[in-house]
Design a protein around this nucleic acid. Structure first.
Lengths: 211, 211
DNA sequence: GTCTATAGATTGATAGAC
DNA sequence: GTCTATCAATCTATAGAC
């Protein structure tokens, strides 16, 4: 029991520091101090700092992928039963909404969203690949659904637009609801649900623009 | 003359390594080895690693900002002479096109675009602020122009959408023309000009979507 | 301006006592 | 499982010869 406590305290501390300070910029000393565990505990429980990163990402991303996959598959399945193509808006929402709402799902989830929002533009290949490997299947599924929803778009253009959407999402995730342009002359940023609504409108309009 | 050569060799090497490996993950040893200068030369010519980063960013970003500012101001000025509001598409193009075309403007510029594409989601505040400080005036100018172009949008929504666009741009810049989803089952990514055209269409549609 | 040599601090990982 | 102590490798920065 003390074992599980230690493991989880390390995972929680790592999630926070990896997200806020970066993976390479987080020392095991700073981490074990925050988690209030012994320095040697990280290597005892996880083997290495790299393996710890993988555990941090998997702990949250595997469940999130389950949720997204189930929602997307439901949209596709229901369309199939109606004998129509799935709606691009329903597909997009099935991918975007659970991701951004995940931020408020439990303590520390906001740090996790920050971490994966930063992962795609991470220079360190260890971090980037660890995240990409786990997220690709979900993107494949979404791409396949959108292919049916928007048959008028060429595959190359659809993929490009999906990339744009992923870029927008990454940015929103790595910025929180905060403005990166934190300047008093700018208006206040939107809060969570309004932000999701705006992102949906924005992404859908861009996705459905004539080619 | 040997002095200028050393300074520029350091700047070029730093640009490449900071972009590809990350700022904190680039050691002065690796940098001076690549640039074929002495280890002590960095501190002699720039004072510190942080100051070198600032020099790397300023060298390219100040000229790029000049170009963007001039283009945006021209769009606004011409609209004023016509007695109409500036077009959102012209304003967007004045900001997006020079930025992405900058990649092919000179050797090493592709690394610079990668570097600033990654800057916004950089966990290290030194890097992020160094970039933000220089890019904010250009964003302010664009925002002011769009405010006139799209008076039907509230300030908060317009700012949010502008953030989305910046997120999309960051993503495109940090991915190059390559697919982050580099998987043989995906179609080939678009090349440069087609990518810019698609980004323009996508961003404009999202920006002009009904609120 | 360029170099060698090194100070001084920090890192990930581990050996071995308990 | 947890701890202390420490290794070996890294880092930025600088002093001082040339």
């Amino acid at each position: 029991m003390a074992q599980l406590d230690t493991k989880n305290r390390i995972l929680n501390g790592a999630e926070q520091l990896f997200a806020r300070e970066g993976f390479r910029n987080t020392s095991l000393r700073a981490l074990t101090r925050l988690a209030e565990v012994n320095l040697a505990a990280v290597n005892y429980h996880f083997g290495s700092k790299d393996a710890l990163l993988q555990a941090v990402i998997e702990r949250r991303l595997l469940p999130l992928n389950e949720i997204r996959a189930k929602k997307i598959e439901t949209v596709i399945e229901q369309a199939r039963q109606r004998g129509t193509a799935p709606g691009a808006d329903d597909l997009l929402r099935a991918f975007i909404e659970p991701t951004l709402e995940f931020r408020n799902s439990s303590p520390g989830a906001d740090d996790f969203i920050l971490l994966i929002g930063r992962s795609l533009s991470e220079p360190d290949a260890t971090v980037r690949n660890c995240f990409l490997k786990l997220v690709l299947p979900a993107v494949h599924l979404l791409f396949a659904g959108l292919r049916e929803a928007l048959p008028q778009l060429s595959s190359a253009v659809l993929l490009t637009r999906l990339q744009f959407i992923i870029g927008t999402m990454s940015h929103v995730m790595s910025m929180g609801t905060l403005s990166p342009l934190n300047d008093p002359t700018f208006p206040q940023p939107l809060e969570q649900q309004a932000l999701i609504d705006q992102l949906m409108k924005y992404a859908l309009a861009g996705l459905e623009a004539p080619e």
